[in-house]
Amino acid sequence: MRLAACLLLVSGFVVTLAALVLLPALGMRFAFVAAGLAVECLGVWLLTQAYRALAKDAR
């Protein structure tokens, strides 16, 4: 779960870089960078859930 979360984080960054390199129009870039950030937020959420589950087990 934690590895998947880290992969999501990196994937979001790759989407952001790809938007920069491949898309010339501001609107398209904006949309894809926002999508990249959304993927990263998903990664942070997944990482948080992984540790939440660990904390629950520890209790």
């Binding site: 984080l9 990196v10 979001g12 952001t16």
Partner: peptide
């Protein structure tokens, strides 16, 4: 957009 790219670098690579 430039600031969002900076945030993406922080969350997507540095984290």
């Amino acid at each position: 957009l430039s600031q969002m790219i900076g945030v993406a670098a922080l969350l997507g690579l540095m984290l």
